[in-house]
Amino acid sequence: MSKKAGGTKIQQIFVNLPVKDLDQSMNFFEKIGFTFNPQFTNESAACMVMNEHIYSMLQLEDHFKTFTNKRIIDADKGTEAIFSLSVSSREEVDELVEKAFQAGGKPSTEPQDHGFMYQRGFQDLDGHLWEVFYMDMNAVN
């Protein structure tokens, strides 16, 4: 199912995130199962592949600043966004979040079970918030 936004079909998404230490961030996300596209990775930024349509550009803060006139928030003190990842089962929720904890991430919320939806959250090394959830569409009223 593809929907159009303003008449334009969105094909991919690239979420740009400022990071303090690119190597540490790449190592963290590799430990939880993501890969990097070396074609779009250098000493200032890395293209993290989440799947064939979803990517995150991890950028050193100084490099990230070249794309905006706004100040970068300290994600340990404030939140601008929560990045939600849908997975195929409750077990995958637990698996991904536990990998994040083992790689140095911190809990951000308590697990929530809404019957039709199960979710858990973690903070990455830079304090960005990630939510992993499974939604049983057969149980949605």
Rank of each mutant, 00 (worst) to 15 (best):
M50F: 11
R71W: 01
D23P: 06
Q112H: 05
K9Y: 08
D76R: 13
S108P: 00
K70Q: 12
E43L: 15
C47R: 14
F101I: 04
Y55S: 06
F67H: 09
A5P: 06
S2P: 03
K3W: 00
L96C: 12
E43D: 15
E92K: 03
D21I: 08
Q12L: 15
V19I: 14
F64A: 09
G6Y: 08
E98F: 01
F14D: 11
R90Y: 07
G121N: 05
Q59P: 04
K77N: 11
A81E: 08
A5W: 13
G121A: 09
G78S: 06
V19G: 00
D23T: 15
R120T: 05
D124W: 07
A139Q: 12
D113E: 06
G78T: 14
M1Q: 02
F34M: 06
T68F: 06
H63F: 15
G104I: 05
I73V: 11
E61H: 03
H63T: 10
G78H: 09
D21Q: 04
F34K: 11
I54M: 09
K70I: 04
P38E: 05
I72Q: 04
S84Q: 07
E52P: 00
K106G: 02
M50W: 13
V132A: 08
P107V: 13
D21E: 15
P111E: 12
A139R: 12
N37Q: 06
V132C: 08
N141Y: 10
A5V: 11
F83W: 10
S44Y: 14
S84F: 10
M135E: 06
V93P: 00
D126R: 01
F122K: 00
A103H: 11
K106T: 03
A75P: 02
V19C: 12
R120H: 00
I32E: 00
S108K: 12
F122V: 05
F34D: 10
N51Y: 13
S56K: 01
